[in-house]
């Protein structure tokens, strides 16, 4: 296990959740697992903030929730990206790209 975990910068949690959900509808645990795996175990979503964040995104209408059966046949709450959420994801992805490249530029300064 990689213990060199990074704290998520402010505001990136929403972006990560939206990105994870853009592939397929998932339940909360799967979201956190997916992000953990894809980031090669660098990013660990703090469990305490995952669910409040999901509720916030749902309230904003970016994701919608429905109850379904999980792979081991238990009731689980699945989240899905809405059309507004997809737009939001695009916007936030662009913002993020601009931010990181700008930060990179500044860091490359000599």
């Amino acid at each position: 296990m990689n213990d060199a975990r990074l704290d998520l910068p402010q505001g990136t949690l929403d972006l990560l959740i939206l990105k994870a959900l853009s592939l397929e509808p998932m339940h909360g645990w799967a979201i956190s697992e997916r992000i953990h795996q894809v980031s090669r175990e660098t990013l660990q979503i703090p469990q305490g903030s995952l669910y409040p964040a999901l509720h916030r995104l749902e309230r904003r209408g970016w994701i919608s929730a429905s109850w379904g059966a999980s792979d081991n046949n238990r009731r689980a709450k699945y989240y899905e990206l809405t059309r507004a959420g997809r737009k939001q994801l695009e916007a936030e992805t662009q913002d993020w790209a601009r931010l990181t490249s700008a930060v990179a530029l500044v860091l490359r300064m000599s």
Partner: peptide, 13 residues
């Protein structure tokens, strides 16, 4: 629902 959701998470974990 919130309760069920959280319990489900812990069980999967």
């Amino acid at each position: 629902e919130l309760d069920t959701e959280l319990r489900f998470h812990i069980e999967r974990e």
